[in-house]
Design a protein around this nucleic acid. Sequence first.
DNA 1: CGTCCAGGTCTAC
DNA 2: GGTAGACCTGGACGC
Length: 233
Amino acid sequence: MAVVKRVLRLDENLSGFYEQAAGDPELSWATSGAGRMIRSATVFEEVIKTICTTNCAWSATTRMVSALVEHLGEKAPGAPETGPVGRAFPTPEAMVEAGEEFYKDVVRAGYRGRYMLALARSVVEGSVDLEVVDAPREELPDDELEKMLLALPGLGPYAAAHVMMMLGRYSRLILDSWTQPKYARLTGRPATEAEIVKRFSGYGSYAGLAFWLYLTRGWIEEPEDAGDTTRET
DNA sequence: CGTCCAGGTCTAC
DNA sequence: GGTAGACCTGGACGC
């Protein structure tokens, strides 16, 4: 039950965001209940998955994550013998046990394999406690949290913003090669990073969530856009 | 078949 | 502190 609550964000209170969105003609639609984004069971899983999104196509992300789950994840009773279905995301211990060749030859993670292994090792040996970053803002301010994430191997500004979103810290905008062109297409003209940040600055600690919902509004009416598997010309 | 690049990051200036 | 170059991979694209 705890995992389900976490994954579905059942405890999250977005009323503060909705109050602001209600006054924004382009986001008022979201007040009917959007924004409760599904997330992973642990911070470790969130970070590894995020590393798998960097500098590659989405198809590569799903391939890498599926390989990790299929080969290293614990199988649920009754789950198929092969394939990622019915398996949990691997523990840090299992990921350390796998060794370098697994990331190179099976996951085909390229240079990312080094980051994943380093992170898993740090967690196992105890030099890094990832789950402590899932602390309330009063204990761990956004700036401090961001610094901790940026210190992890393979995590830069994009990945830190992404993980923070998953942690319910919506202050950062996820700016990458998908979100910026997507924003430009929706508004009908190119925009600099600074202009985008300014557009959502009024949302304060919810700026990142507002930006994301603005970008993904079409996913509700046009779910086929969710994958963006082909280049939009 | 070669080049480019996709939901970036790291290192070396 | 800001910025080129390298970096795994595989699918898309031009020739």
